[in-house]
Every structure is written in C-alpha cells, then in structure tokens.
Write a protein that binds this DNA or RNA. Sequence first.
DNA 1: CAATCAAACTGTAATCAATACAAGAATAAA
DNA 2: TTTATTCTTGTATTGATTACAGTTTGATTG
Lengths: 141, 141
Amino acid sequence: MGLSFDKLKKELSKRNIALSHQRLKVLEYLADNRCHPTADQIYVALKRQIPTLSKTTVYNTLKILGEAGMVKAITIEDNETRYDIDCKDHGHFKCESCGTIYDFSIDLDSMKSGDLNGFKIRDKDVYFKGICPSCLSLTGS
Amino acid sequence: MGLSFDKLKKELSKRNIALSHQRLKVLEYLADNRCHPTADQIYVALKRQIPTLSKTTVYNTLKILGEAGMVKAITIEDNETRYDIDCKDHGHFKCESCGTIYDFSIDLDSMKSGDLNGFKIRDKDVYFKGICPSCLSLTGS
DNA sequence: CAATCAAACTGTAATCAATACAAGAATAAA
DNA sequence: TTTATTCTTGTATTGATTACAGTTTGATTG
C-alpha cells in the first residue's frame, strides 16, 4: 500500500489523536480497496476482523481522518457518502448505470476563475456523470 | 426572469408532462431565487402562496424537472440537496463558514481527461470549498 | 352536460444514512 | 494504584427523502 505513516502520525499527533487499532484498520481498508466504499461497506467488511466494531466508530474515524486530511469524502449524489484515501489530484466519474465510481486524472491547479478573487479555496472537486464503457457495451449503444 | 418557456414546454410535452400550477410556481421560485435553495426552503416559501401544497409535490416536481433538464440538483455535502435552475456552465463554491453557495464561471468544455476515453459523459460538476470574502473579513485573516 | 380516465396532488407512514449521547473499555500519566 | 483523558460501543434520535394510497383535477369522449 502507498500509505505514508510518518506523515499520518505527524498529522495526527499534531492534533493529539492516537492511531488506534480501529483507525488503522479503516485506513488499511481504504488503502487496499480503492473502490470508494461507503461507511457501511467499510463497517461490514471490518466487522469480520473486529467483531466488536461499532458503526459509530467507523463514522467517527472517517470524520477525524477527514479533518486530518488523510481521507476525503465524496458526495456525488444519492445520499450516499463515499470515501477515498488517495489525495492526489484526480476527478471522479460516476456511471449512472452501474454506480461505479472511476478515478480520472485532471489538472486541478489550472482550474481557476476570475469570479473567485478574494475567495480562500481549500478544496476542489470535479465530478463527471455518464455511462462507463462496460455498461455502454452491454446496451450496444 | 430568464426562463425559456418555449423550450420548457416543448421538453415537457415531449414527455407528456403538464406544466401545472405547482410546477410553474417551483420553476418561478428557482428563477427568482438564485440562492440554490433546498427542497424544504422551496416548500416553506411556496406554502404561503399555495396553502395546500405538499412537500411530496415539491420533491416530485424537482425530480421531474431535473429529468427534463430544466433543474439541476447540487449535492456538495451535508446531506442537503440544493437546486439550481441556471443550466449555463458554471461551478459552485461553498463557503464552509456561512454555508452560502456562490456561482463562478468556468470553462467546462475544456475540461477533458485521457482516462475517460470510451466514457459517455453526460454531466460535469465542479465544486470548490473554502471561505468566502465576507467571512474572511469577519475573522480578520 | 355527465361519464370516464389518466395525470397530478396531498398527507401519512416508512426508510435509512448520519448524528447525539451516555456508559463502558483502554491507555497514559502521576 | 489512582486519576484523567481518550477511544469505543450501543442505543436512541434526527431529518431528508421516498413509498404509498386516497383524493382531486382536468381533459376527452359520447
């Protein structure tokens, strides 16, 4: 996996946050499953390894790691928040047929707008929607 | 207001959808209030004009008009879907302090990615987050 | 003008992701 | 060991959205 634990621990200790067993497992799961899972998917998967795990812990962990900049929440639509550990600049494409979310590279730095002079921009999100090649081949069109 | 009723009615009649009183009022509200309101805000505001209005009708209307391409749902975060009638290409900036959503111009057509060859792109969304000038001036920083 | 039918509207009930909260472990410090 | 603080857990609650069934509206037909 490509996790930078040094950066992570430094970031967390700066906030007096311990890297507990549960939190580490959530991070590991996100690192190993780059499918943008929901909180519930993470919970169900980890519940097998950690039978005592609580869904509240998963939500708390995702929130804390999000504030520390280690995890990013993706809210495209459908009232389902998904999570991504990869913080490198990329956009997200959601297939409206199968629901899969694909990453794609895009240069966020070059995205500027004169309308935002005086605004402090902390985060940029790019979401595309449509049909993925796999679903396109199924319908024939 | 800048509503194109001809295009609207054509689009709706193509789908055998009538432009009822309630639906027209929702459209009018969105045209007159470019603040990206939630479904509930629309409901509360129109309830005064139409005391019998049901919240379900507001949701149904927003869904139907969305499918007809007349209204766009904006889901940045916070489990609150907002709605926008302006379909011209622009991005949305959400102030994390006051919650206001600002429009800003951006060239969506130039946004491409080689990773999406073979994908059928139907919609592009650009969401920025940060602090707006008004809130920046309040904190002094 | 009834009669008929489909679409539109309404209100209540249900869903479900997310949060609040309080009590119980774990961990570190003294 | 005591103490304090953080972390975890489970339950209860929230709140936006949807499902559904009954009612109303409005157009069409005879």
